[in-house]
């Protein structure tokens, strides 16, 4: 899969970077927030892809804007001494779990549908019932 390949390429790239390129420890909250923003976008994008309503412009703008907003909030929190980045972490965390849940449901639905479609010819009524159930 392209996604796994991308992840591996990223890890290798970062491992190959010289240690002088590692951002200082004071940036660690920024990196973790950026990481969460990225993970949120990826999970959201996969969900969109599976549900067949993936939109590149929404994906890219969402990723960039979310990251920027999260960075802004983190920076602001740093200035005023409040851990505002928590807000970003909680928001992204909730969204990641929600989207992940949707992906799970989508995949299960598809598997169920595929299983029922093979039985469809034999029992039309029952398949109609299960479809009605899955729509709920």
């Amino acid at each position: 899969m392209w996604i796994v390949l991308g992840l591996i390429v990223g890890i290798i790239t970062a491992l190959a970077l010289p240690s002088s390129m590692i951002p200082p420890i004071s940036c660690s909250t920024y990196i973790s927030v950026a990481f969460l923003a990225g993970l949120d976008s990826v999970i959201g994008g996969i969900k969109g892809g599976i549900e067949d309503n993936f939109d590149l412009s929404v994906f890219v703008s969402g990723f960039i804007m979310n990251t920027l907003l999260a960075a802004l909030i983190t920076w602001l929190g740093d200035r005023v001494g409040v851990d505002l980045y928590m807000a970003a972490i909680v928001t992204f965390g909730v969204r990641i779990f929600n989207n992940f849940g949707s992906i799970r449901h989508d995949i299960m639905k598809k598997n169920m549908n595929a299983a029922h479609e093979s039985n469809k010819k034999q029992e039309n009524k029952s398949s109609a019932k299960t479809e009605a159930e899955t729509k709920e």
Binding site: G6, I22, F35
Partner: peptide, 24 residues
């Protein structure tokens, strides 16, 4: 392909971020 490639690129950034965090 059209939806997987942008996600793959984002995943790459994700990989970089995660490795940076570990290194840090």
């Amino acid at each position: 392909g059209s939806w997987q490639i942008p996600i793959a690129i984002t995943c790459m950034l994700l990989g970089i971020a995660v490795t940076m965090m570990f290194k840090q």
